[in-house]
Design a protein around this nucleic acid. Structure first.
Ligand SMILES: [Mn+2]
Ligand SMILES: [Mn+2]
Ligand SMILES: [Mn+2]
Ligand SMILES: [Mn+2]
Lengths: 236, 236
DNA sequence: TTAAATATTTAGTCTTGCCTAAAAATTAAG
DNA sequence: CTTAATTTTTAGGCAAGACTAAATATTTAA
């Protein structure tokens, strides 16, 4: 049975699997779902029996096709609801996670597909995370780089945040950074990887801690609308 | 703790309490929440201990102020979500109950108040049921009568349904009746209380079973838009 | 007013999901 | 390669909520 608890475990495992490791450890999962390793171990055994994941005792788990699909569907619901909360109810991006954490467990497939249509089939949620489609796979999305690894002296645009806990999101607010913010990396300090960045319009050069630079997805900035001149045939 | 189960019990008791009886019986509650009298008895004892209702063993329960408020808040959420589903996601009125039954348990007060505002502070849900306000009390609404008890030879308009299970709602669809449908009661048959009704535009007089007439709220029909002639100054 | 029918509670279990403490396996160090 | 540290599982319990069967209280009817 797909209980709220089971859904949260599967989604947590998906997150950890996407973030890198092929096999996911009991402790990591326990931490993600805020429970104990003992409870998690018991849960993993059960999820294994029921075919949502492969559990090699003492060596971690991996989602089966079936489990992966379930987890992607939860993620889809989570992110679509976040879009709704921000775009239609006026919430800030640092206020929606906990609410979506509940909404994602509402079951109806019809509901989520209609919500998707109502929202205009968005590809990204308010944190720049990719929204899975109704087929349970990620929608293709433009390439993106971590700010830390982006080339220097090129105007970039922030397109997403990695692991955007609410505290981090509020910190970005303090720094004046949000999705769509443009910036150029002037220098990467070899000491700790801090970045000197400059935002168009700002006088000052900003020093960005590596903990921030490692958690921002950026893309090459397309020319800003103001400086795009229409072709003649585009004019009425 | 306000679990989903507890919330469903409290809402069921509120429903039964509003529908008439001051004290509500264990069996009636059990039936409403689709569980057994034994399970319900245990739950009622617990709800009593926790101050949501007064339980006189063998003589039914009554919600306390505190329990009443909780139940009203669940009802508010249920009905506001139903509005959203019908008005924005294009669901039919017979498709939304089960989904709202889940959505009503999402906790955030901020969420429901913003949803209320987004919907334009509706007073009635898609079934014509009154939506409680943020203060936990019903918003005032126009007077209404059961069709069975309405005066004859007066044009009426359907403003709500009583206990609108999905099956009943679909049956109304077959009969061509929805919210806003106008009709005049020509005669009430003394045999079983069936009603002869006539809808404007229809040729035929319809015979309505008492099971239908007893479950329709009606109000005196205001003049229909078609027969209102604009004043001269309203013309361009 | 007593007996039968009905409603309610109690007793005894089960499942899910969580916990702590202890045992066992794996991994890391010396 | 053996010991120490870490990770994972097992053992034993608890609380919530549900069920069936049996006991008890209340109503209804004879
Ligand atoms: Mn969740
Ligand atoms: Mn998100
Ligand atoms: Mn419900
Ligand atoms: Mn309704």
């Amino acid at each position: 049975m797909l209980t709220v608890s089971v859904e949260n475990y599967l989604k947590a495992i998906l997150h950890l699997q996407v973030e890198g490791d092929d096999r996911v450890s009991t402790t990591a999962i326990a931490q993600k779902v805020a429970s104990t390793p003992a409870s998690t171990s018991a849960m993993l055994a059960k999820l294994g029996e029921r075919g949502w994941l492969e559990h090699q005792p003492y060596h971690g788990v991996r989602l089966t096709q079936k489990g992966h699909r379930v987890a992607m569907d939860i993620l889809r619901k989570h992110r679509l609801w976040e879009c709704f909360l921000v775009d239609y109810l006026g919430f800030e991006w640092d206020q929606v996670h906990d609410i979506a954490e509940e909404l994602e467990h509402v079951g109806s497939v019809e509901l989520i597909n209609r919500l998707d249509a109502f929202l205009g089939f968005p590809k990204l949620d308010p944190h720049g995370d990719v929204i899975p489609g109704p087929n349970g796979r990620f929608r293709t999305v433009a390439a993106r780089t971590l700010l830390t690894e982006a080339p220097r002296n090129l105007e970039l645009v922030v397109v997403g945040v990695v692991d955007g806990g609410d505290a981090f999101l509020r910190h970005l607010g303090v720094l004046g950074i949000q999705l769509g913010t443009r910036m150029t990396v002037l220098e990467r300090l070899s000491f700790d990887g801090s970045l000197h960045i400059k935002c168009p319009g700002d006088e000052e050069v900003q020093l960005l801690a590596p903990s921030v630079g490692q958690r921002l997805w950026v893309d090459q900035s397309s020319p800003s609308p103001e400086i795009v001149f229409p072709e003649e045939e585009d004019l009425q």
